[in-house]
Amino acid sequence: MYEFEYHQPKTLEEAAKLFADADDPQFMAGGQTIIPVMKQHLAMPSDIIDIGRIADLQGISVDGDTLTIGAMTRHGDVAGSDEVRKSIPALSDLASHIGDPAVRNRGTLGGSIANNDPAADYPAALVALGATVYTTSREISAEDFFTAMFETALEDGEMVVKVTFPVPEKAAYEKFPNPASRYATTGVFVARTGDGVRVAVTGAGACVFRQSDFEKALDTDFSPPALDGISVSADGLNSDLHASAEYRANLITVLAKRAVKHAG
């Protein structure tokens, strides 16, 4: 590992000042992506600003029909939370399948969405559930937050503080995990709300996206056969050593059907 400076602010204000004063700073939440990436010199920030001890970023709460999760909440804590399990069990289930137990004990919601890995699980949940990302300066709808591969709407120095999720009528997430990394080769999150059905796909493209033809069909008939006869185009989907674009296109249908069935 190369040399860098390390800071451990206790408040958001202190973190912002450290960021502004450094040459090439990087916030670190759970470190499960940035530490391996830095070891390989794929990123070489001059300053690591560890936000793990900022109290304002912690916590899970439910208020009426809204679930709020702090940015520094670990995947394992989301998976094990009674509040999450009771309000949005699909989100609890998703968190329990991220990486492995050791990764889930360090990795965080905020870190995952700020990184926006194209194969990460959380982006699908945020987009399908119509979540809102609260940052240090504004609120951003999930669909506007995830902009491109490893890119988000976050400006330099802007930090995710918390995410709010409207509680859906029903929801489920199904993924085809890469057998080594457990990242989603493709993952589909289906949510039915009072405003209709939303279907979000991760792992298949450069960035999470909505499958609007599925949404229309499921709005009319929320059952797996409703998706029969809709062909998903492989155009623009990822093709790599794990799966071809055509394979991923097929997975979108298979996983969406499973998710609808699972949602009940």
Binding site: Y6, I35, N105
Partner: peptide, 26 residues
């Protein structure tokens, strides 16, 4: 050393973590 194999798992405050994916300072 890429946080995949799990040989380096230790308990931090009772929870298993990969010690190659955590800074000593943390």
């Amino acid at each position: 050393d890429t946080s995949q194999c799990g040989a380096c798992v230790v308990h931090v405050d009772g929870k298993p973590v990969k010690s190659c994916a955590m800074l000593a300072a943390q």
